[in-house]
Design a protein around this nucleic acid. Structure first.
Lengths: 264, 264
DNA sequence: CGACACGTTGAGATATATCAAACGTGGTGG
DNA sequence: CCACCACGTTTGATATATCTCAACGTGTCG
């Protein structure tokens, strides 16, 4: 089924019925070539896309036309579900590799929201997961150096692909270029190249010819300060994912962290 | 009314009826002191908070306990509305200044989702706005230098406060420290201080003793490459907000940017 | 075979971090 | 009322991560 990879997550999983309903709402399936804009910023949308195969991204241009990627999408993701309540997008959507997508008209989503509040809430949930990933990306850009950013990104991608059965935890197909990586991590492609060499030399991982191979996932997670809890994965999947140990962190929860003082 | 500042936006504004319903769902109003954790990461939540007064933030700690702020909240924001579908949070929520919040139990939100799909969609919309702001922050961290980041952030904050009537466009009360700014922009507070001095010297803006004063909003927007479209504001408000001219950008939309090739 | 995109490497420039110290200033207690 | 403290701000000197520019290598595809 076309929706089989969608939303396999801790707090929200589609039951068969819901999966079928969503799959039945698909009007069209398209094959897309690599490096093509799929949805342009600002244009009113009347459908949303479910990614079936390949990798898409969302990005914002700067003054010079250099892109900042704000999201990467893996198979199973509802790429621009947010265009349903929002109307148009504040960013572009583009393919990074060849890809296959399925289109769901907003009219069908509207009907789901009317009739199936439980499913509607799961769709909402799916967009909140995207937002949680945005926040992890903010952490990555704001607090990690180039090495850490790439490490963190690879840990995340590995975990997400693992969740949909497209990585075994050590190795996955990933046809992005070093420049793509640069636009994700907010650094130059030259520097990406040097960091990648460093990772190879330290036997942490290899990124070559469309394959990522992780040799030391412990160290990768540690260098990327990667804590996968923001992905809200099922316990089962989560257990298989090496993580930066949360208890290493100084949480500064010493003070009482609850609502205080007068109420009215 | 306690909800008067909530969701005054282009594609979604609450009508009186909806506002009243939401306001009636508030069970509690709290006054919070400055620099206090309000919601800790991971803990199961049974209510969400509407910010009435003051500033809150959301943040993620790094290994050394340094915070990366991932969101700033201004009065009218539904700070942790996402904890309703999500359950617990992947980050902490804390006050930045003294603040007043109103609590809405998740049970009440659940009822709204059941009975009022239109209002539910607007709540969804509100969380999507947060996500759009996350993306702008990603752009800021990934593509702008320290000067640009601070400029962009101040433009955004000014616009958001303008939308809820807390800035006249040139000046607003803003009791954050330079360290807060540093944790937002992913730079050190020492560097924030130097950039701020630069802005003062260039007569662009002044950030002092809890007041932001913008002397040259054109230049501020330009240096921050600030395009407010991601805030989805009403045309009226939008017109009053100086913006980096989108047409300056190289949008690279030359290729056909629509779905291509075979469908099945 | 040539063209073109991607990857790799080097040398030098620069933005920002780091460390350290001094300065205000508002609040508190003696 | 003054002394002092805590906290935020300001400044300087030095270190360093990353960028920039430039060249060259390598593989793929028409």
């Amino acid at each position: 089924m076309i929706t089989e990879r969608f939303l396999r997550h801790r707090a929200a999983t589609l039951d068969n019925d819901e999966q079928a309903l969503l799959a039945a709402s698909v009007t069209d399936t398209c094959t897309l070539t690599t490096r093509r804009i799929v949805v342009a910023a600002g244009e009113q949308q009347s459908q949303s896309l479910l990614l079936v195969e390949g990798f898409l991204c969302r990005y914002i241009d700067d003054r010079r036309g250099i892109r900042q990627l704000v999201a990467l999408h893996v198979p199973g993701d509802f790429v621009d579900l947010h265009s349903f309540p929002l109307g148009g997008l504040d960013h572009h959507v583009s393919t990074l590799t060849a890809a296959k997508v399925a289109a769901v008209p907003h009219a069908a989503l509207a009907k789901i929201c009317e009739d199936r509040p439980a499913l509607a809430k799961k769709l909402w949930y799916a967009t909140l997961l995207d937002a949680a990933i945005h926040r992890a990306w903010l952490f990555r850009l704001g607090r990690l150096d180039a090495f850490g950013r790439i490490a963190h990104f690879l840990c995340e991608t590995n975990a997400r692909l693992q969740a949909v059965g497209l990585s075994d935890g050590q190795r996955f197909a990933f046809g992005l270029t070093q420049s793509d990586l640069a636009e994700i991590c907010g650094i130059t492609s030259v520097h990406v190249n040097r960091v990648l060499r460093g990772m190879r030399e330290e036997q942490i991982m290899t990124f070559r010819s469309g394959q990522v191979e992780i040799h030391d996932s412990e160290r990768l997670a540690h260098r990327g300060e990667f804590d996968p809890s923001y992905l809200y994965l099922d316990e089962g999947v989560l257990a298989a994912i090496p993580a930066f140990n949360r208890s290493d962190r100084c949480l500064r929860l010493d003070q009482d962290h609850l609502l205080v003082e007068a109420s009215a």
